[in-house]
Simulated scan of single mutants.
Amino acid sequence: METRRLGRTGRDVGVVGLGAWQLGADWGAVDESDALAVLRAAIEGGVTFVDTADVYGDGRSERLVGQVLSSYEGLTVATKMGRRVEQVPENYTAANFRAWNDRSRRNLGVDTIDLVQLHCPPTSVYSDDAVFDALDAMVDEGRIAAYGVSVETCAEALTAIARPNVATVQIILNAFRLKPLDEVLPAALAAGVGIIARVPLASGLLSGKYDEHTTFAADDHRTYNRHGEAFDVGETFSGVPFATGLEAVRRLAPALTPGTTLPQFALRWILDHPAVSVVIPGARNPAQATANTTAATLPSLTPAQHTTVREVYDTLIRPQIHDRW
Rank of each mutant, 00 (worst) to 15 (best):
F231T: 03
T290G: 11
T223V: 09
G204R: 03
F132V: 11
A42Y: 05
T308F: 10
F216K: 11
T79S: 08
V233L: 08
V166E: 09
N165M: 11
I43P: 00
L252G: 04
G66H: 03
L173Q: 02
T159V: 08
Y126I: 06
V88Q: 13
E141M: 14
E247P: 10
D272V: 09
D133E: 15
T93D: 12
V249G: 07
D58G: 05
N174F: 01
L23K: 01
P274C: 11
V47S: 08
I161P: 03
S150A: 14
G28S: 13
F242W: 06
N292V: 11
F216Y: 14
L298Y: 14
P281E: 02
V193L: 09
V85L: 15
V88S: 12
I280M: 08
E311D: 15
A188R: 08
L135I: 13
F132A: 07
G57P: 10
R284F: 09
L206C: 04
L252P: 15
T48I: 03
G24I: 04
P286A: 12
Q305G: 13
P200Q: 05
P319F: 14
I196E: 09
L246W: 07
L271M: 14
G45Y: 06
T3N: 11
A53W: 02
Q320N: 05
G82D: 07
A230Q: 14
L135V: 12
P89Q: 09
D323K: 12
T112W: 01
E235W: 03
S127G: 10
I43D: 00
G142D: 12
V249M: 10
V149F: 08
F176Q: 01
P319Q: 10
V278F: 08
A287Y: 15
F265H: 07
D232R: 04
Y72R: 04
D133H: 11
G28E: 10
L246V: 12
